[in-house]
Amino acid sequence: MVSTLERLGVAVGFPHPPVSIDVKAIRAKLGVTQKEFAVQFRFDVDSVQNWEQGRYQPDSPTRILLKVIEQHPEAVEDVLG
Rank of each mutant, 00 (worst) to 15 (best):
L66E: 07
E6H: 06
L65K: 06
G54H: 00
K24Q: 09
G31E: 01
A11I: 11
V2G: 12
V39Y: 11
E70V: 03
F43M: 00
V19K: 13
V19G: 10
G9A: 09
E74W: 12
I69D: 08
E74D: 13
V12T: 13
E36R: 14
R7P: 06
L8V: 05
L66R: 07
E6I: 06
W51E: 00
V79R: 14
L8T: 04
E36W: 06
L80R: 04
V19Y: 14
A75I: 13
G13P: 06
P73E: 12
G54W: 00
G31Q: 01
P15C: 11
F41G: 00
V45G: 02
R63N: 09
R7Y: 11
V32K: 07
K67R: 15
Q49I: 11
D22T: 01
V10K: 08
E36M: 14
S20M: 05
V48E: 03
L80M: 06
T62D: 00
S3A: 03
F43Y: 14
R27E: 03
D78Q: 15
I21A: 05
V10F: 10
I69Q: 09
L8Q: 13
R63A: 09
Y56K: 15
P15K: 14
A28W: 05
P61V: 06
Q57Y: 05
K29L: 02
T62G: 00
G81T: 03
P73H: 11
W51L: 01
V12Y: 05
P58K: 04
W51Q: 00
V2T: 14
E77K: 15
V23Y: 10
L66I: 04
R42F: 04
Q57T: 11
A11S: 15
K29E: 02
R55D: 00
V76E: 01
L65P: 05
E6P: 04
G31K: 00
V19E: 15
P17M: 08
I64P: 01
E70L: 08
E6Q: 12
D22S: 07
P58L: 02
G81Q: 06
H16Q: 15
V23E: 09
I69R: 08
L80K: 01
E52C: 04
V32T: 07
L8I: 04
E52G: 02
L5F: 14
S3P: 10
K67F: 14
S60Q: 14
L80W: 06
K29H: 06
V19T: 14
H16E: 15
D59R: 14
S47D: 14
E70Q: 15
S20L: 06
T4K: 13
W51T: 01
V19F: 08
I21L: 06
P17N: 08
N50D: 14
R42A: 09
L8H: 13
E52D: 00
F43V: 05
I69L: 10
S60I: 05
S20G: 04
Q71Y: 07
